[in-house]
Amino acid sequence: MKIKHLHHIAIICSNYQVSKAFYIEILGLTVINEIYREARQSYKLDLALNNQYLIELFSFPNPPKRPSRPEATGLRHLAFGVENIEKETIYLESKNIPVEPIRIDEITGKKFTFFSDPDNLPIEIYEV
């Protein structure tokens, strides 16, 4: 297999409008395409970061909850690289988004921290 790059990450949310606002207004992703699929009673929102297709945000009627913490099998978190973690932490907190204390990666010596999306999906920011 010769994988060229990560194509996208699919996320199912419980409240489409709340999650849409979070990923666009808080995280700054841009909309590529948005459709409503009547047969599935589902929105599909394609989002990009720096013009790169990155996330498919789906809504479905009554999706089941998925365990996130304590650590559960499956996707652990999304991680985004940032230049200044303190600045981004202050920004998130100004939007009333709780952020964990900044930690240092014991292997790389880089700063990182976590916060959550509206459905409690862990999101990491990592200073690059």
Rank of each mutant, 00 (worst) to 15 (best):
R69C: 02
A72P: 01
C13N: 05
K44F: 02
L78M: 11
I11S: 11
E86P: 00
P64L: 06
T89L: 14
S68C: 12
T89M: 07
Y91T: 03
E38I: 06
I12V: 14
Q52V: 11
E83A: 09
K111M: 10
I90L: 15
L49K: 07
P61K: 06
A48N: 10
D46L: 09
K44G: 02
Y36I: 08
K110Q: 07
E71W: 00
A39W: 04
H8K: 13
L78C: 05
I24T: 14
E86S: 00
T113W: 00
E127I: 06
D119H: 02
V82R: 09
K2S: 07
T73N: 12
G81S: 08
E106F: 08
N51W: 08
V31D: 02
Q41A: 15
E71G: 03
I90C: 10
A48H: 06
K110H: 12
I35R: 14
V82F: 05
L29M: 13
S19E: 03
L47F: 00
Q52G: 04
G109T: 01
R76A: 10
N96T: 13
L78A: 02
I85S: 04
M1R: 11
S116C: 12
E71L: 07
I3L: 13
G109M: 04
G81F: 04
T30L: 15
R40G: 07
E88Q: 12
S19D: 00
E34N: 04
R69I: 12
I55N: 05
D117K: 10
I104N: 08
F114Y: 14
E83N: 13
L29Y: 04
F112Y: 13
R69K: 13
N15R: 04
S19G: 02
L57R: 02
G81N: 05
S68H: 05
A79C: 06
H5K: 13
E56I: 10
P70E: 05
R76I: 02
